[in-house]
Amino acid sequence: MATDTPTDTDFGQVSRTKDVAFRLLALAATLVGIVSLAALLANVAVDAVGWLNWGFITSPPHPDPYEAGFLPALVGSIAIMLLIALITFPVGVGAAVYLEEYANDGLLTRFIQLNIANLAGVPSVVYGLLGLGLFVGLLGFGYGTVLAAAFTVALLILPIVIISAQEAIRAVPDSQRQASYGMGATKWQTIRNVVLPRAMPGIMTGTILALGRAIGETAPLIMIAAPTTVFGIPNSFESKVSAMPLQIYTWASYPETEFQYGVVAAGVVTLLIVLLTINSIAIVIRNRYQQRT
């Protein structure tokens, strides 16, 4: 922009040294965690090369690192996860429907809401003690069984499922409910035919992400005395079960370098791939839903 006027006013310059320095500092802070994690992931991926192969995926554990496999832990994790999904989905959606569609804004509702937020922050090891005392002790599900493991971790992720389902239900526009009531529908008909179908992709996404959290949980399984090493695949709810993170924890304490930098790395990469798959499914569901509206 050209100016043809003589400039007799000088606004001066305000120093931006602090501004620029702060901006760079803040950017560096934002990246430091991401970059560190990326470096660690690269390390473990490189270490897993040669160890993560078909034999590893399809064999039971073995004291010889070159024979050791991950199959029972992999199958155990998936079995636990499926059972968790069966438990948390109906209960979580039910609770969310109640809180969003039925409950008034009274004291009880606020108490339930506060309680759910608080439960989401209870350390997982404490849930382990709940499982040990309630499911193993009182209800006799047995030490380290599929059933005990699934119920314990299900209670742990239930608050997350409820909160995300509530958000999905809240996102359904009120005009949709009004339209349904205007047609003479009852509350239940409105929920079943209008609210839930519309909220379902969001609920699914939230639940699947919560299952991703569940599959990485270790401490609760330790507390309910899930066996650290299992050689067979679980074939019933009462079977003793191991899980991927638990097997990783066990192997990480082996002193041999072949375990520390080989077998465990392969286990970690397997766990992360399963986790990535689960999260990708959630994202695909969310994106497909976003395209439709």
Binding site: G94, Y98, I112, N115, P159
Partner: peptide
């Protein structure tokens, strides 16, 4: 549904 919501208090 209310029972489901109350389950969270029961958990605590």
């Amino acid at each position: 549904f209310m029972l489901c919501a109350l389950l969270s208090i029961l958990t605590t």
